[in-house]
Design a protein around this nucleic acid. Structure first.
Lengths: 408, 408
DNA sequence: GTATTTATTTTAAGGGTTAAAGTAAATCAA
DNA sequence: TTGATTTACTTTAACCCTTAAAATAAATAC
């Protein structure tokens, strides 16, 4: 006669099992219990339910049996077809679409050149609808449902309201994009800052497993940052937290793309480096306000080959970066600062002055034990993170929908 | 045959009831249910248990009955005698001891002048033992137990390890103080940064209830900060997060007490203001490296009365503060920045340049909707916060001990 | 083939919550 | 005064969830 349903333990335990399987791949019931602090009786019960719902499958026993006495483990694993998610990365003049399955694997990826800066808000919406529709038609055969869509956007976004507040890739502002896409595709839409996606991927790597408080700095055309606190992205009041690129190096210093002066980005971003170099050096021509990868590589090479003017420019960028990181250490005291993004190509030319600036700026007590490391850049990382975040965000819904359809 | 005890819901609900009573004062069982999302049947069960354990009492009905039909509410309230906590604030050359009861009310407060800078670690330990023993003997009659002790310390502390890493009040470092006090008084000892205590008190005020992400800046002899994220103090990897005072205004700028250059503290703290003024102005004599309240008031008065040199000094301090706050806004994007501490006496003389610097530093998208306000300073706030935090930290233990003694 | 080992499932109990029913204690209305 | 009404609290009887223990399953070791 009672309908409690307030008890969350079964729900929580079920989500924990799903996420363990996603992180670890196939796992036996005993081990699922041990990893999540629940009894194997409960795991039996939960996995029976998930099997019936089609969210997991039992993996057939290996042909060469693993050594050891006793009854062999029966591994269960996520059913990759149970759901899929789409992640769209929006950057300057390019979008990338990636499809991921329920187990988190990337199934498909495509890039499109798009003149993003010329689009209106309606154009963008129409474009996204078209591209997502196409990918749904071509790539989503066999999946039981589209669980969600993640929009990974450079710039300031409000995840909560699903609004792009400002992006360097777009010439309009305050676009409530999530709601429209959600309505069109009948699934939840997660709007994320691109740096948060990358930080989520990096934080999942075993090398950084012991860093609950992780700062990721992304060098590139602009400079982005993500702060994970206990493993979750810190968003702040409007989602405009972690704007490292616009924290200050020199009040009244160099002009930044944001229109103000003295931002770290105005010294250490691609456009700032190229701007500083354009007057003094003989570099490949082109749009010097939006240097290409080729142009940046040429400039980096000059510095690494010992050209004094190029070295001076990178040294000053390193100093700016160092002061900025010193402020981050003083304010966040993270376990680890990771520097990545396409701009890491020039990290070796900035590293010395960066470390020097940090050591000059902070006494050892405040410098703390924070590791500061660079990290190779992979342009696919953003969407991998977006897929992981979208799956995580939609697990509860996928679960409840599977329960509903299993009952009927 | 089973001893589950893993189910945490009863425990969580019981703590929620205790904390609701502490925050709200006497509350009826129905309202406890509504406030915490549990049924009143459960509240009946929980409060029966707490009554039996002596942690709460039923308040006798009011003589002039509250209007309204129906059976009147029976209010329950915390039994103030159920436990008490002691908070000790350690600042430069002064300690304050405060006793709080289980309901969170301050029962006793005392100040002692102590030459803290001349103490060794052992001296400090002996001194604290002596003062705590004395207060226990005199003030703890009638309390069922001493639940915990809170040490509120200016400087960098590691709450986790109970170690004072560095404090401007002490001439030694890395003192593992918590463990020894805990052993001596057989209760848990919470080591907290003083700014976190103050932030906790402020965050509990109704005016700031809608600010889950709150930054509190404390101006005084030095400059401290606390960052509450979703209402809990952010500590960072070693507890040295939120060191706003040592974030940078000008690389290679003014000399700071920490030994480095260009820190915000080197411009806007009491010692920095007095140092800048000492050469130009006719001020009360004394130790200009440790200006007294009287000296600071004289200096502030000069600025507020229009003395150009004093005004220039406060204007520059405001600019430094503004750049520092701009960085805090860019990195944390909080809902509210509160400026308090004894140094708010000079806030009016800094405010204009501070706001100007913030507006110059950040575009509106990054400036966000963060409110920036000052807040009157009360030297007792630290210990009030320490008491609240100590009670919060020890509630679970108080509960389990009461259960154990109620069974026997 | 039997003992041993390990994994999974079943069973029985226990803790927790709640809807509903029951009880208590007030006001309102005649 | 008395009964209807209203609101608060308590008791009861489910129901959910978890787990220890027992049972079962499926391998290896001897």
């Amino acid at each position: 006669m009672a309908l409690p349903s307030t008890d969350t333990s079964r729900h929580d335990n079920t989500l924990a099992v799903i996420r363990t399987l996603r992180d670890q791949g196939p796992v036996a019931r005993v081990d699922l219990g041990a990893l999540n602090g629940i009894s194997s009786a409960t795991v039996t019960s939960i996995s029976a339910e998930l099997l019936q719902q089609g969210l997991i499958t039992e993996r057939p026993p290996e042909i060469p049996r693993p050594s050891g006495r006793g009854r062999p483990k029966t591994l269960v694993e996520l059913n990759p077809q149970a759901a899929c998610v789409v992640c769209i990365k929006l950057s300057i003049n390019e979008i990338q679409l990636v499809v991921g399955d329920f187990s988190g694997q990337v199934r498909h990826s495509e890039h499109h050149a798009v003149p993003t800066l010329t689009l209106s808000a309606d154009d963008l919406e129409a474009l996204l609808e078209e591209k997502i529709s196409a990918i749904c038609a071509q790539q989503l055969k066999g999946f039981q449902r589209l669980a969600g869509i993640c929009l990974a956007v450079q710039g300031v976004v409000s995840s909560q309201s699903g609004t792009i507040i400002w992006s360097p890739a777009l010439s309009f502002r305050n676009a409530p994009i999530s709601a429209r896409i959600a309505e069109r595709f009948h699934c939840s839409v997660l709007l994320e800052n691109d740096a948060n996606c990358i930080a989520s991927v990096l934080a999942a790597q075993p090398a950084y497993a012991d860093c609950p408080n992780l700062v990721v700095i992304m060098l590139g055309y602009g400079i982005g940052m993500s702060v994970l606190i206990n493993g979750v992205p810190y968003l702040g009041a409007n989602g405009s937290a972690a704007e490292f690129g616009h924290s200050k190096y020199q009040p009244d210093g160099a002009l930044c793309a944001c229109g103000r002066r003295g931002c770290i980005e105005a010294y250490a971003s691609d456009y700032a480096l190229y701007r500083a170099a354009a007057d003094h050096l003989n570099l490949p021509s082109g749009d010097s306000a939006h240097p290409s990868e080729q142009q940046m590589q040429a400039l980096t090479q000059l510095a690494l080959n010992g050209d004094p003017a190029a070295q001076r420019i990178y040294a000053e960028a390193g100093r700016a970066l160092g002061i900025g990181i010193a402020n981050v250490l003083a304010l966040f005291n993270p376990d680890l600062v990771l520097i990545t993004g396409s701009g890491v190509r020039g990290f070796d030319a900035m590293q010395a002055t960066m470390h020097h600036a940090i050591d000059e700026a902070l006494v050892t007590e405040l410098r703390g034990s924070t590791r500061i490391e660079s990290c190779a850049w992979d342009r696919d990382m953003t969407c991998m993170g977006g897929i992981a975040m979208a799956l995580h965000a939609t697990d509860a819904q996928t679960l409840s929908e599977s329960q509903a359809s299993a009952v009927s």
